[in-house]
């Protein structure tokens, strides 16, 4: 086994060409659990944590933000990122514990592609673009095309996830999650809701209730017919309830060691109802 600790993307691509089957590691919070429990014994590892260019983020001129794949969650909880992407800040704050948020990254969430990854519903709600680079190519992929299934994504073996770009929306956005306790918990069900006033649309994405993150397109288009999203200042309880019911119908949960399908479907409907109620309670 070898471990490479490149200091730049170019060095990382060199390492990847020498060891094409290497596991890429960001904060390590997923891979090290697998290693500690002897579930995997990687042959080679390339650690991306010291690549400075992956640990930066910037606001672009076209009203979008690009976040490097190595930016830790703790940076998304505060400051300008929190102001501009409140749903991402809320999701970041629910990731594990302060110790995990100091290490964990969106790059890791995307690389692992677990449906319970807390950053992913936000990226789906915001129609994020994922940036992938190899030594010679560079491409952009919609998050909807990137995540293929449970822990499966469209990254090629010679590519590194360098970051994501998301729009800065005008409108309320938030993230909510159900787990067995308040801190330090993996999602049983989660949801991200974002209102886009400019386009009079609402986006809702669900985590941990299907093989991928699920966008509830039917519930989204139904809500737009009930409510003028740009001018509404409140929402009828009956509309919020019906929105929750429709969202739950679009979930595809399963029974597993963390919860039952029935509970997850119920929970995700409640989360959707709460989020839309929060969005229209000033």
């Amino acid at each position: 086994m070898t471990v490479a600790v490149p200091l730049s993307l170019n060095e990382a691509f060199d390492a990847l060409s020498r060891t094409p089957d290497a596991r890429l590691i960001q904060g390590g919070t997923d891979l090290m659990v697998e290693i500690n429990f002897n579930h995997v014994k990687p042959v080679d590892v390339i650690a991306l944590r010291r690549i400075k260019e992956l640990r930066t983020w910037q606001v672009n001129s076209n009203n979008t933000i690009t976040i490097g794949s190595g930016v830790p969650y703790q940076e998304m909880e505060v400051g300008q990122l929190k102001e501009l992407l409140p749903a991402l800040a809320e999701a970041a704050r629910t990731v594990g514990s302060p110790q995990i948020r100091a290490a964990g990254t969106l790059g890791g969430n995307l690389g692992t592609c677990s449906p319970a990854g807390d950053g992913l519903p936000v990226l789906f709600a915001l129609d994020a673009i994922v940036h992938l680079q190899s030594a010679v190519t560079s491409r952009e992929l919609s998050i909807h095309e990137f995540m293929l299934g449970v822990k499966r994504n469209a990254r090629h073996a010679n590519e590194i996830i360098t970051g994501v770009t998301v729009p800065i929306l005008d409108g309320w956005q938030g993230y909510a999650k159900v787990g067995v306790r308040n801190a330090m918990v993996i999602s049983v069900a989660s949801a991200c809701l974002a209102v886009d006033k400019k386009n009079n649309s609402v986006r809702i994405a669900l985590g941990a209730v299907g093989p991928t993150i699920i966008r509830c397109r039917d519930a989204e288009s139904w809500l737009v017919q009930q409510l003028d999203l740009t001018t509404a200042t409140s929402i009828d309880t009956t509309i919020a309830q019906e929105f929750g019911r429709r969202v739950a119908l679009e979930s595809k949960p399963i029974d597993d060691h963390r919860s039952t399908a029935e509970y997850r479907r119920h929970a995700v409907g409640v989360l959707a109802q709460r989020l839309i109620t929060r969005a229209y309670t000033s």
Binding site: T29, I35, Q99, A103
Partner: peptide
């Protein structure tokens, strides 16, 4: 930063 040392691969902590 406070981190869980069980989740840090030691060889990646050089520097």
């Amino acid at each position: 930063d406070a981190v869980c040392s069980c989740l840090v691969m030691a060889a990646t902590a050089i520097g």
